[in-house]
């Protein structure tokens, strides 16, 4: 785990729309996590509240309940496109 930098948060939507003070607060409250291949990041939510999950690096496949698969490319691969959040409970 490593602290999130405000420069990183300012590349993420809709966080980038926040005032500088709020971005600073968020930066102090969140960390960048590394998840090894094969682990499910949606099963790692130790808090009960709904979370927004930004994929920053690497490739993640999402299997939907209707058996369709989505494939997400990380923002690191497409740096011009801001990363987008996925909700997890």
């Amino acid at each position: 785990m490593q602290p999130a930098q405000t420069s990183l948060l300012n590349t993420l939507e809709p966080i980038a729309a926040l005032s500088p003070g709020r971005v600073d607060e968020l930066a102090a409250m969140c960390v960048v996590e590394t998840v090894s291949q094969g682990l499910n990041p949606f099963r790692m939510n130790i808090v009960q509240s709904e979370q927004l999950l930004y994929l920053l690096k690497g490739d993640l496949s999402l299997s939907m309940w209707m058996a369709r698969a989505m494939y997400c490319m990380a923002a690191a691969i497409l740096p011009a496109i801001p990363s987008f959040p996925i909700r997890r409970r």
Binding site: A4, L8, L12, P14, I15, A17, L18, S19, R22, E25, L26, M29, C30, V31, V32, E33, T34, V35, S36, Q37, P41, N45, V47, S49, E50, Q51, L52, L53, Y54, L55, L56, K57, G58, D59, L60, S61, Y71, A74, P85, R87, R88
Partner: peptide, 22 residues
């Protein structure tokens, strides 16, 4: 599919911050 890096944020907190700034 590979090792990944993620960032997680409390959705309610972000909603509140956006609302207050707005």
């Amino acid at each position: 599919m590979t090792d990944i890096q993620i960032l997680c944020i409390d959705a309610d907190l972000l909603d509140i911050m956006l609302t207050w700034d707005q």
